[in-house]
């Protein structure tokens, strides 16, 4: 795998997004924009989806990874992130990916978990997006918000045990969720988020990768690729772990590549 990644800035001066372009040695068969997950999961999956992009690029699928406005290395304060804003960012990334794609093939999205909500909206708004794939899809935003709140409560509880003897600064009223800014406006967006949302245009290829139970819930998908338990554990913890592309990951990534290039 000797495909070089190229860091770059996307978007207008007021909305600069940090991105990494994983080009192909040959003209690309297609181009995929990778829409990262939300909150702490962005950091947990950062290396994993970088390696995934490199592998897809080596297989002939150029990839563009980026950080939403207000997250990662992109411009904006933490409080600036919103699902609607993420949808705008995806449109910026799609335009940039299309401009850089040498092969001139189709452009699709690969959204990770919560990134599926803005990716779906972006696909509805832009008929030129031919594929929308979601890795470990989250169907119900309210359910996800509840799950995050449980994790948040557990983490705050751990941190109030000795020797962490604090109470005031771990107040649940600090506008934070799992260590990330989460204003009420974002909570509202999450509560309303659903998959499937508005109908996609006919002809849009829709696929999911996930555990068996996630595939069962994703009845809206045309294509399904099952992930083993070990391939999905990156999102099960708050702790960032060293990431390697094991067989449990390379097999579904290669299957995804062959479906996309078929």
């Amino acid at each position: 795998m000797s495909v070089m990644s190229v860091p770059q800035w996307l978007g207008p001066p007021g909305r600069r997004l940090f991105a990494t372009w994983h080009g192909c040695n040959e003209p690309a068969g297609m181009t995929l924009v990778i829409c990262p997950p939300l909150f702490h999961e962005r950091v947990l999956g950062y290396r994993l989806f970088g390696l995934l992009a490199a592998r897809l690029a080596a297989a002939g699928i150029a990839c563009l990874r980026f950080d939403y406005y207000g997250t990662g290395d992109s411009a904006g304060d933490d409080l600036d992130f919103s699902l609607e804003g993420a949808c705008t960012d995806i449109a910026i990334a799609v335009a940039a990916a299309r401009a850089q794609s040498v092969g001139g093939g189709s452009v699709g999205l690969l959204a990770v978990r919560g990134g599926g909500w803005p990716a779906w909206s972006a696909t509805v708004r832009d008929p030129s997006i031919s594929h929308c794939w979601i890795w470990q899809p989250l169907t119900d935003g309210a359910e996800y918000l509840d799950a995050l709140q449980r994790v948040d409560t557990a983490e705050r509880t751990v941190r109030t045990n000795p020797p962490f003897c604090k109470a005031p600064s771990t107040s649940r009223d600090d506008g934070q969720l799992v260590g990330c800014a989460c204003p009420e406006s974002l909570r509202r967006e999450l509560r309303d988020a659903q998959l499937p949302a508005t109908n996609l245009l006919p002809g849009t290829s829709l696929g999911v990768l996930g555990r068996r139970n996630e595939l069962d819930r994703a009845t809206f998908a045309t294509y399904r690729i099952e992930l083993t338990e070990s391939a999905t554990q990156w999102a099960d913890t708050l702790k960032v772990r060293a990431t390697f592309l094991t067989k449990a990951l390379t097999e579904p990534i290669d299957r995804l590549a062959s479906v996309l290039l078929a």
């Binding site: 983490e155 705050r156 941190r159 020797p163 962490f164 003897c165 604090k166 005031p168 600064s169 771990t170 600090d174 506008g175 934070q176 260590g179 800014a181």
Partner: peptide
């Protein structure tokens, strides 16, 4: 002593 290793709390 009241702060954790990864600065989970915004105040920290």
């Amino acid at each position: 002593p009241d702060c954790d290793h990864v600065f989970f709390a915004e105040s920290d």
